[in-house]
Amino acid sequence: MKLNIGGITEAGLSKNNLTGSWRYHFPTINPELCNTCGLCELFCPDSCVHETKNTITVKEEYCKGCGICAKECHRNAITMIPEGEKQND
């Protein structure tokens, strides 16, 4: 593989890097407290929190579990649950 000078390369390649495996804690959303204000989406450094159809979803394959969404949520609707203790596990 020939390298491009300066490491300049095609866009969007970070999608290939599944960072979800780094995670120790997963953000769990309480739909009763969440009013889908979208602050979590705004603050997520990896753009893996999304608001669709009035619900918040987190892309598990990319979420590193940093907890910024939980910290920023004004309604304390997000809890960081240790991996392995998720309710659906």
């Binding site: 390298l3 000078i5 300066g6 490491g7 300049i8 390369t9 095609e10 866009a11 969007g12 390649l13 970070s14 890097n17």
Partner: peptide, 20 residues
């Protein structure tokens, strides 16, 4: 025509980049 600047290069390529 978006491009990536400041990409990650692991130990398998970084020496080559520096050498360039």
């Amino acid at each position: 025509k978006p491009l990536t600047y400041g990409a990650l290069a692991d130990d398998d390529k970084i020496t080559e980049f520096k050498c360039m």
